[in-house]
Amino acid sequence: MPGAARPRVTLRSVLARLNSRKVRTHLGTVAGVVILAVLLWRLGTGVFLDGLRRIDGPGLVVALGIGLFTTVFSAWRWQLVAQRLGIRLPLVPAVADYYRALFLNAALPGGVLGDVHRAVRHGQSAGDLGRGVRAVVLERTAGQVVLAVVGASVLLTMPSPVLAEARHVAPLLALASVGALAVVLALRMNRTPARRDRTALRATLDEARETLLTPGVAVSSAVVLAGHVAMFVLAARIAGSAASVAVLLPLAVLALLAMGLPLNVGGWGPREGVTAWAFGAAGLGASSGLAVAVVYGVLSFVASLPGVLVLVARWYEGVRTGSRTAVPDTAVPEPEGHYPRASPVSRAEPSAEVSNVTYGPKESARLSSSRFPFSADPSEGRPMTPESV
């Protein structure tokens, strides 16, 4: 018996270690590195180098223009969602913070740290961390929902390497979704949740419905998706692919869906693997697909580089403000912030009816003692800021 119990304890300890926060944090990075290593092993480094050599100045300028286009509409979507939640968010600071988030997403492992930073900064500056985080989560969810709807339509109607599989899998997924919904409803009917749980769930569903069904949010998400597809087509042209836009569209959708997987290194990994496979299955060559993915990754990173200017400008402004202002021990500075604190929103009233009286400037956000540009604390009353839609 003792000998039989020892393997069980060992297996339990191994599973506990695999489920630890440290392993979960680095799992995506490790998976992205493994995918890139396999691609290098199978296709060689010449494909990467060839894709990089094809990038020229005009291509970078066009990429910056597309990046500006998609970032402005992404920031507008964020602004609309924040307003629905009762948080004031001016468009110009939102664009700057979104650029900063895009750069952090591209430069740091995981691909989401910039959005986390943006959510925390905006919530702290607005005086409501919960609403700030929910605004970013719902804003990104809106983009993913539009990508899923458009992607399913494209993959089910246009010729692609997964057309036959998609048409066979789609009915099964629909039936599985209906069955899962029926099970959830049955479980909810058979149990009696606490009143607090019902209120919190109802409030969350109301927020999601009010934000995701807003016409402006849907339009901005569609425009952002079109910008990402245009970037993919530009990358294909730079990489030397002569395939038509109709052929590249389903391949771009597959690449964008792969980019949503949290198994990457700054966005690199699944995108390159899926694009190489899709191009090979479509008869365009796996090497060509990998070159397109590499060029796309470089162009996306270049499109996020204005975020560096935002980081440096905010950091320098914080240093100058701190050096000019002498703060007594008994006094706390109260500078005017860009995001005033929002007063509580009553769930009995539609959140779309946000009045200037309710959400006008009230109490300003306090300056943080930290002047480092990556600090999670507000340094000037502005929020700290995917790739993804």
Rank of each mutant, 00 (worst) to 15 (best):
P58L: 07
A4M: 11
Q83A: 14
G111S: 08
L187Q: 13
R134T: 11
V224A: 04
S375E: 03
G318D: 09
V224R: 04
G51Y: 00
G266M: 10
V223E: 09
D206E: 10
K22F: 14
V295Y: 05
S346D: 14
A166H: 08
T321Y: 13
P361F: 14
L309K: 10
R320H: 11
Q83M: 13
F374E: 10
A63G: 06
L108G: 07
G32Y: 03
R8A: 15
E363S: 13
Q124S: 13
A218R: 01
R6K: 14
M259R: 07
L60W: 02
P250K: 01
E165S: 13
A200W: 05
L290S: 05
V223T: 10
P7H: 08
V274H: 01
T325Y: 04
V145K: 01
A94L: 05
Q144H: 12
L299G: 02
V229E: 00
W268S: 01
Y339L: 15
A5I: 13
P306H: 06
L89A: 10
A281W: 01
V184D: 01
G57F: 15
G267N: 03
L163H: 04
H122N: 04
A258H: 01
S20P: 07
N356F: 11
L129Q: 06
D377I: 09
R324Q: 12
A365Y: 03
V120M: 06
L205Q: 03
V116A: 13
Y99W: 13
P262V: 04
R134L: 13
R382E: 09
A281D: 04
N19L: 10
V145N: 02
A230P: 05
T199Q: 13
D329I: 13
P373E: 05
